[in-house]
Simulated assay, not measured.
Amino acid sequence: MMEYKELHEVNDWDQAWEGSVKKPILLFKHSTTCPISAGAFQQYKTYLETADQDINCYLVKVIEDRPVSNQIAEVTGVKHESPQLFLIQEKKVLWNTSHSDISVKSIDDAVQSVAP
């Protein structure tokens, strides 16, 4: 089982971004007031419960931690959406998706494409 770490400060994001040089990261941007985001978050958590990859996983709550969410959009160059999921390696967004396209299968397919 993999676990995620919440990113509350821009510095937390900076460290995750830098860490993507050593190990891929999965990053979920979650709106805690949106039912679509709640469903996508459940898919993310289910994936993490069943997967066993060498990957760092993160969560950003976009309302509560807006500066972090904004910084992610700025650094990655990917327009903000929520829910939104990123797979990042070596400071490059290899894959991202949003809304109902976030599923256990889509996450697994993306991770399998980069995992050794």
Results as ranks from 00 to 15, higher is better:
18 E>L: 15
18 E>M: 14
19 G>S: 13
19 G>Y: 05
19 G>Q: 15
20 S>A: 03
20 S>P: 11
21 V>S: 11
21 V>T: 10
21 V>W: 09
22 K>I: 06
22 K>N: 13
22 K>D: 15
23 K>A: 12
23 K>P: 14
23 K>H: 08
24 P>T: 02
25 I>A: 11
25 I>M: 15
25 I>Y: 01
27 L>S: 04
28 F>G: 03
28 F>D: 01
29 K>D: 10
29 K>S: 06
29 K>Q: 10
29 K>A: 08
29 K>V: 05
30 H>E: 01
30 H>M: 00
31 S>M: 07
32 T>Y: 03
32 T>K: 04
33 T>F: 05
33 T>Y: 06
34 C>L: 05
35 P>A: 15
35 P>K: 12
37 S>F: 12
38 A>C: 07
38 A>S: 13
38 A>V: 09
39 G>C: 11
41 F>M: 13
42 Q>W: 07
42 Q>Y: 10
42 Q>S: 08
43 Q>T: 07
43 Q>F: 08
44 Y>G: 02
44 Y>M: 01
44 Y>E: 03
45 K>V: 06
45 K>D: 11
46 T>C: 04
46 T>M: 02
47 Y>R: 03
48 L>N: 00
49 E>I: 04
50 T>I: 15
51 A>S: 00
51 A>W: 00
52 D>A: 14
52 D>F: 08
52 D>V: 05
53 Q>E: 08
54 D>P: 05
54 D>I: 10
54 D>C: 02
54 D>R: 13
56 N>D: 11
56 N>I: 08
56 N>M: 04
57 C>Q: 05
57 C>D: 06
58 Y>M: 10
59 L>K: 14
60 V>H: 02
60 V>G: 02
60 V>L: 01
60 V>Y: 02
60 V>T: 00
62 V>W: 01
63 I>N: 08
63 I>Q: 15
63 I>G: 06
64 E>M: 07
65 D>P: 10
65 D>E: 14
66 R>C: 04
66 R>P: 02
66 R>V: 09
69 S>A: 09
69 S>V: 03
69 S>Y: 00
70 N>E: 13
71 Q>K: 14
71 Q>D: 10
71 Q>E: 15
72 I>M: 01
73 A>T: 15
73 A>M: 13
73 A>D: 12
75 V>L: 13
78 V>L: 09
78 V>I: 14
78 V>F: 12
79 K>V: 13
79 K>S: 14
79 K>P: 08
80 H>A: 13
80 H>C: 06
81 E>D: 13
81 E>Y: 06
81 E>L: 00
83 P>C: 08
83 P>H: 05
85 L>C: 09
86 F>T: 15
87 L>K: 04
88 I>T: 06
88 I>V: 14
90 E>A: 15
91 K>F: 07
91 K>G: 02
91 K>S: 12
92 K>W: 10
92 K>R: 12
92 K>Y: 11
93 V>K: 06
93 V>N: 06
94 L>K: 14
94 L>Y: 11
94 L>I: 12
95 W>P: 07
95 W>C: 07
96 N>C: 07
96 N>Q: 15
97 T>C: 00
